[in-house]
Design a binder for these strands. Structure first.
Lengths: 348, 348
DNA sequence: GATAAAGTTGAAAGCGGTTTCGCAGATAAA
DNA sequence: TTTATCTGCGAAACCGCTTTCAACTTTATC
């Protein structure tokens, strides 16, 4: 026997609405979905009652019925990194405009987590998955992961910000070459020749691309290439920038400008330089990437590369929806721009 | 007439599994839910086939059937703020351990958005909502918002990190008094007497509590209270810390220690002080709140208050689950701790 | 070995929407 | 007025799972 609790207020359903409006559930559903075949008076009445009870149709029921959730899953490496946070926020906004909800997951950059979360999203029956960071950043794609994503792609399209060789993932990617070109043209125009690159890892696609462009830019201006000015066997955080810069200075290298792999690394680089008695930007110019608020917060504020997160996010969502509807381009490049602040200046 | 597309690979269902395992769908469901009443051999066979197809049960169907989604909605003001990002991440982890998924929404601190997102979450039939930041931070609760939340609470429990007077929301809150007490005891022990408070707004609960404790601590040590050392008519960002500190210095005030309302404001305060020729910490000690990486990134690194995000998030999820199951305490305080770094030192 | 108790299993009824189908009434065409 | 077309709407099937119920097997008890 069922005992009713007093405050067991079951959520209202279209049946309740239908009864009170003296129509069939089908009609209520019609007004809910915007189907036009409902007489004006009935539509009005139904809407009034929906309003009265602040009725919200059960998304699970709707999703089950339509076999689509209207959710886009977003898998990032770590929202605590403002780069991901900015991008997620932009996706959230763009998704909303397109009638989608967004579901965020953090992999903390461990592959098992990424695989687990892909499964999790499949289980939620998200309509598409956008992966930002993690395995899709790899210069050479991980076979096991490729296999996993291919399995996922059987039912759910996947969009990535890097690449995943051996899959048909759509790609929306920052034009890292262009970004590095902007930085190099800028620094060289300021008279710099001894330009260092610090932080990151060559096994990451975007970093690799930056290195390629670095050499291209040097060549263009006939500046000799010194491998000791490249230090990309680290990570993307403060500590790494700090350590690698220290090491480079210890080797006796004295660059007049440093391109850090991102804003975090840039702060580490700056700490190192300051500790060694260099002034920024008087003695050494430092630039970063990502235009996170870190670059504004620091003293001096950091010259960096901006991606227009709003636009980037919009492109990602568009790609996801294109993927859902089985159309659209395979690769899209987002053009970065230069943000000049206080950490860079003319070579003295 | 239905035309089948070649690669229209419909996701597999328990019926498919059932057929291949030569059992009924009910049995498949039983093994899925861990129901014990299935003979060992059958269970094994079913599991094998599930494994073979990498079958993931449709969460919407399951949710609809069980009338619960196993999703906890998390409404934050802005993930780009590392405080929220940390907390969200901690919630995500804790939720996972408890068998829940988490759904993040950003209100950007505008009430219409908060209300809209509450509705959105209700529509998704999340099992509970955790609101972190936004209207729940207000010292005096907004009536309209209270009404909205009460309406939501008809169907979905809400947990807040602040308070919402006139609702039965569970609260999990940082002990801001304790936090300020730690800071004041520390600074006073270093010999500081002219201690300023910069940033934030008294209309925010936690800030109000900090101010209350500030005065208490002064009283305890018989230090005179100078209202001009309080500047809490601003916001929680860098710019605000910078501006308010400038104003205070312009008034001729010369505190030997500054408590900034959070790490962002602290960086603004530091910029202002440095520009005015003060050294940190030799001339002025600066402390912040939140122990975000900003406080590690800055030079000097910032002494701050830590909340143990991991634990905080766990408490939030526990409170949410307690709320779902209609039990547990109404209010829980999380105890903060002091993290001493380079931005503070003895009064010279 | 008979009987009671416990363990297994499938059929079927939901969960709350959407959509197809067909009927009835309204409107247009003949 | 009759016939054809269109519009509005309800009945019912379906989306993919869980769970109740009843029937059927096993196992335990005496």
């Amino acid at each position: 026997m069922q005992v009713l609790k007093a405050n067991e207020s079951k959520p209202i359903t279209i049946y309740d609405i239908a009864k009170e409006a003296e129509v069939s559930p089908a009609t209520v559903s019609r007004v809910l979905t915007g189907n036009t075949n409902v007489r004006k008076e009935k539509r009005k009445k139904v809407l009034e009652i929906i309003e009265k009870y602040n009725f919200k149709p059960n998304a699970m029921a709707r999703g089950l019925s339509e076999t689509k959730s209207k959710i886009i899953g977003i898998l990032v490496a770590d929202v605590r990194n403002p780069f991901y946070a900015e991008l997620f926020l932009a996706c959230e906004q763009a998704a909303k405009l397109a009638g989608y909800t967004v579901m965020l997951c953090n992999s903390l950059n461990v592959m098992e987590q990424e695989e687990y979360l892909l499964d999790q999203m499949v289980q939620q029956r998200v309509d598409a998955i956008i992966q930002i960071g993690g395995r899709v950043d790899d210069l050479v794609s991980n076979m096991e992961y490729v296999e996993k994503v291919n399995q996922v792609m059987n039912t759910t399209p996947v969009v990535v910000t890097g690449k995943l060789e051996g899959t048909k993932c759509k790609m929306v990617r920052i034009d890292s070459m262009k970004a590095m070109e902007l930085l190099m043209e800028y620094l060289i125009s300021l008279g710099h020749q001894e330009i260092a690159m610090v932080g990151g890892s060559v096994r990451v696609l975007s970093t690799y691309e930056k290195l390629v462009q670095y050499r291209r830019s040097l060549q263009k201006y006939h500046i000799p290439y010194d491998p000791d000015l490249i230090s990309a066997e680290g990570s993307y955080n403060v500590e790494s920038g700090y350590r690698l810069m220290n090491e480079m200075l210890a080797k006796g290298k004295r660059p007049t400008a440093v391109v850090a792999i991102n804003d975090f690394a840039a702060t580490g680089v700056m700490h190192s330089l300051l500790e060694h008695g260099f002034r920024i930007p008087e003695d050494v110019s430092v630039v970063g990437y990502d235009n996170t608020y870190i670059s504004q917060v620091m003293n001096p504020s950091i010259t960096t590369i901006d991606y227009n997160y709003q636009y980037f996010g919009k492109c990602l969502i568009e790609a996801a929806i294109d993927a859902i509807e089985d159309r659209g381009e395979l690769l899209k490049l987002v053009t970065p721009s230069l943000v000049i602040r206080k950490s860079s200046g003319a070579k003295k």
